[in-house]
């Protein structure tokens, strides 16, 4: 079984982001970048399926600027076998990303795509569902557990984290799964694996090798910093707190 994992390079989640003064976007200059945390979880899920003998190969795909290759190498060091970089500097909507991934799926013919549930920069939470729709494949979003059916490895039992609880479904492959935080804890790459990753195949493709048109159908007009909350007050005692709640805020 072959698994495809799309991976986005994003600002590291520890970084306190800054909006550019001209309101055109977020300042990425000299900022630490990482693999989107949900995509690390997706790679880990794929690697675990490989360790269980279910999957035999893992292909990574990243769409974006040159530096994506660094993230792809980091992903290869986590246990993926080969990588594809679709090189573009254009702003990409989730729909365009999903459309490009659809063509990658048609070329690579994976049995399963495991994507992150959301990229923590745009917070869209769309690509996996869109890809499933474009391919007309079943989807299991927000996965917190993936079990392979004993009697039929072409069926996955997936537990999904939904509002109000969790739901378990069975999906027939080929399918798209998107990962939630509790699916697993990604491993760290070891030094030998980092070395090995340098020699794993990484193919670079240009968008004009695809039939997808990269259009700004969803256009960003501006970005702003949200209104700051007013400065708070420090209290010393619980009695003060109750007093404030009751008298100042009239909440009790």
């Amino acid at each position: 079984m072959k698994i495809l994992v799309p991976l986005k390079r994003v600002i590291d989640y520890h970084v306190r982001i800054k909006v550019k003064a001209d309101g055109s976007g977020i300042d990425t200059n000299q900022v630490k970048m990482s693999i989107n945390p949900f995509d690390e979880i997706a790679i880990e899920a794929a690697v675990q399926l490989k360790e269980q003998g279910i999957a035999h190969s893992i292909v990574l795909v990243s769409i974006g600027e040159d530096a994506c290759q660094e993230s792809l190498r980091a992903g290869l060091a986590l246990g993926a076998d080969c990588a594809i970089h679709i090189k573009t500097n254009s702003p990409l909507s989730p729909f365009v990303v999903a459309s490009l991934l659809k063509e990658v799926v048609e070329r690579e013919k994976p049995d399963c795509v495991i994507a992150g549930k959301q990229a923590i920069d745009g917070d869209h939470n769309q690509v996996g569902q869109m890809l499933a729709g474009l391919l007309n494949w079943p989807q299991a979003t927000f996965a917190s557990a993936i079990l392979v059916k004993q009697n039929n490895p072409r069926v996955f039992e997936v537990t999904r984290e939904v509002d109000g609880g969790s739901t378990t479904i069975e999906i027939d492959l080929p399918a798209v799964i998107t990962t939630d935080l509790r699916l697993n804890i990604p491993r760290y790459a070891t030094l030998p694996e980092l070395m090995k990753a340098k020699h794993k195949p990484l193919t670079v493709l240009m968008p004009d090798e695809f039939s997808v048109k990269i259009t700004p159908h969803i256009e960003r007009l501006s970005v702003r910093t949200p209104a700051a909350r007013k400065k708070g007050v420090r209290l010393k005692t619980v009695a003060e707190l109750v007093d404030v709640l009751k008298h100042t805020e009239g909440l009790l």
């Binding site: 989730p94 869209h124 769309q126 690509v127 569902q129």
Partner: peptide, 23 residues
Amino acid sequence: ASTFGKDIIPRLGALLGVGVLSD
């Protein structure tokens, strides 16, 4: 913009060939 809406609307976007504005 719940897990329900986010599961369905992007898939609908794919079927209609359009994007989605989330959240």
